[in-house]
Design a binder for these strands. Sequence first.
RNA 1: GUGGGCGUAGCUCAGCUUGGUAGAGCGCCGGAUUGUGGUUCCGGUGGUCGAGGGUUCGAAUCCCUCCGCCCACCCCA
Length: 423
Amino acid sequence: MLAWNLPNTLIKAVKGTRDLLPPSTEAWNRVEAVARSVFRVYNYHEIRTPILEETQLFARGVGADTDIVTKEMYTFEDRDGSSLTLRPENTASVIRSYIEHRMDQLPGVKKLYYMGPMFRRERPQKGRYRQFYQIGAEAIGSESPLVDAEVIEMVVELLSLAGLKGFKLLINSVGDKHCRPRYVETLRERLKSVAPGMCGDCQRRAESNPLRVLDCKVAADQPVIEALPSILDYLCAECGEHFAAVRRRLDDAGIEYEVTPRMVRGLDYYMRTTFEVVHGALGSQNSVLGGGRYDGLAESLGSKVPAPGIGFSIGEDRLVMSVESEQAASALDLLIAPLGEAAQKCGAAMARDFRRAGISVELAEGKLKRAMELANKVGARFALIVGDDELAAGRYALKNLTTGEQESLTAGEIAARLAPPRN
RNA sequence: GUGGGCGUAGCUCAGCUUGGUAGAGCGCCGGAUUGUGGUUCCGGUGGUCGAGGGUUCGAAUCCCUCCGCCCACCCCA
């Protein structure tokens, strides 16, 4: 009954969380470095919001009857009785921060990016974890379709530079608070006659959430879904023109996309432009990123000043999964093998100097044979032998472990030989 | 929340049908080599067989319960 009184049970990572280990962490770092460099040239700046927020932020921001809020949040009562939640996504937090710090007073479009863990209590599977990581960006303070197009262009650039190949960009417009309700009503009406012939899930959705029917993957339902009215035919004049402008801009930029009127996003705050990038070989969870415009979000969080914006978030776990190739950790530059007490001291000093010069160094102990074996196993590029002869001569035996060649060099020559390329 | 698959050494797995108290390969450690790795050879380390209970003279193996992981549904990143 009391866990701490039970016999020793091995403690493991909690369900849905995982340790990211080397060499995989190198791929994560590469992806994050690419993202930061792309964000920089598009003039985005990093924002770090708390992982813990008031539960109300998500209930009101994401939508009170979305799946995320109704059944996926890690919510708990703080000691003072207030309700706190581990963030399930970050857009609501960014908008909260934007409002709280009156960023609307700053000049121009406010461009922010973030990266970090999010938490949703779902059943784990391939590409889905309870603690997962997102890289995202928000452009806030403009309703212009030019901003939509630039955000999409940036994210396509980011994915390409990260090494993602064969992905597909899907875009849609879900209208605004004037035209979308009209469409949903039409859809609901139409489904009354056709839903009975569809799969069980669709029959249920036809009542509860008609838009979800469009997202059904059951093959037999596809012809029926194709025949349903398209939201694009129901957009009001403003939304229609906005969407057309976004598409013109994407065409100008030479960006390939597919308009998918059936694409549905799961968060309530989206309006007008929505987009998604999918990639095969990710299992059933094939979406690498999702995003869209959220012009009414600030108001639903109680803001008097509007904060129209558009943003996206990349599923970093999924991106890394699809660009990661099995490669070794970055190679060690040099392993120093000192023989004896005096050499040990000299080796430590040399290691210090080399490391300050940007060379990665491992200092071995014990027998030379042992050290050489170790050098080989960890994939060191060079081994440096420091023994009595070398100490006396001031010249050390540097062995290239790839070619097997060995030469006798001074410390300065070795540093020059191993110096990393400047960038 | 609902299905399906799988849990034996650090890793990948065999053994289970037809019960007789645990194996291989790789890894790790050491040796053949006093100051030279990768190949080879030799030796060694390593498992309450996911946990608990039952059947049995005897259970990794048969039965029950539980737990964990993976994949899928739902939904999303």
